[in-house]
């Protein structure tokens, strides 16, 4: 009885310490647990894999540094897959804090491919359209006239003459789009983008917001869904290039187990103390 009462009053710093160890230890000594692929992630991979070389994939990286540990690996995994398949990638963001994350992702992925002997050319293989204020208006504008909405890329180069945007006047002509979102921009792309212009759209989002996109998945308004670090890790494994998301899954596994055990034991303590009239 005393034990359970004391357990319920456990110092929060002990919980913080246990969680910290649960993150650090698996990162230092990975367990390498096998992971199955969710159908909603597999479909995104299959769709992109089936695109013809030269097809254009729009990647919206709508997040800022707060969500980048979960979402940046997702963006990079999609980029790697696209470049491996010789697809052309158009990247942009509706978040003012996002442009440098695009630069970081494109730079690191380009460097990986350069090390493998494949040099990606800006303006031909990909374009960084950067940040544009206006939210929904940017989506609608890109559907009406893409080059009018984005007359230059992020560094001021004219988009009108870029081979990557050749004959592409609207987002309705895109072969595929992946929206990686930390907020409500995913809803904008579904409602104002996919609904109006009909391009195939997949969503990648933080784990905490993944549950709200299942209705769109069920109604086939989105083709697939990458939820949180798990979605990124599954995609990395599908592309055969395990990265930081895959490495982070062991830590996430242990922390989930810690939280579950904390809930179970706290409830046992609660019930025991309640029955003895001491809660």
């Amino acid at each position: 009885m005393k034990f359970w009462k004391a357990f319920l009053k456990l110092d929060r710093r002990i919980i913080y310490l246990v969680v910290a160890l649960g993150v650090i230890i698996p990162l230092l000594w990975p367990m390498g647990l096998p992971m199955r692929t969710s159908p909603e992630v597999q479909v995104v991979y299959d769709d992109i894999d089936a695109l013809e070389p030269g097809s254009r994939v729009w990647l919206a990286m709508d997040y800022d540094p707060a969500s980048q540990p979960e979402l940046q690996p997702m963006s990079k995994a999609i980029m790697r897959h696209c470049f491996e398949k010789n697809l052309r990638v158009l990247v942009m963001t509706l978040w003012p804090g996002g442009p440098n994350l695009i630069v970081e992702a494109l730079d690191s992925v380009s460097a990986e491919f350069a090390a493998e002997g494949k040099n990606l050319i800006e303006g031909t293989d990909y374009v960084n359209l950067g940040y544009k204020p206006g939210g929904v208006a940017v989506i609608l504008g890109s559907g009406q006239d893409l080059k009018d909405t984005f007359p230059t890329d992020m560094f001021g180069a004219a988009t009108a003459t870029m081979p990557v945007l050749e004959d592409l006047n609207s987002i309705k002509d895109l072969d595929y789009m992946v929206e990686i979102a930390a907020g409500s921009t995913a809803d904008w792309w579904i409602v104002y983008g996919q609904k109006n212009y009909g391009f195939p759209l997949a969503i990648g989002c933080t784990a905490v917001s993944a549950s709200q996109y299942y209705p769109y998945l069920n109604s086939k308004q989105i083709t697939g869904l990458l939820g949180g670090l798990r979605g990124a890790a599954e995609y990395e494994l599908l592309t055969g290039r395990p990265g930081i998301a895959t490495a982070g899954m062991d830590a996430q596994s242990v922390v989930h187990l810690i939280v579950v055990l904390a809930i179970i034991f706290a409830n046992i303590a609660y019930i025991v103390t309640l029955r003895k009239g001491g809660a």
């Binding site: 096998p34 199955r36 899954m249 187990l257 809930i263 409830n267």
Partner: peptide, 17 residues
């Protein structure tokens, strides 16, 4: 609580194991 525990364990490789 039960749903949260099931989803938390179902979404990580350790839960699968």
């Amino acid at each position: 609580l039960i749903a949260a525990i099931l989803v938390m364990l179902g979404r990580v490789p350790l839960g699968e194991a």
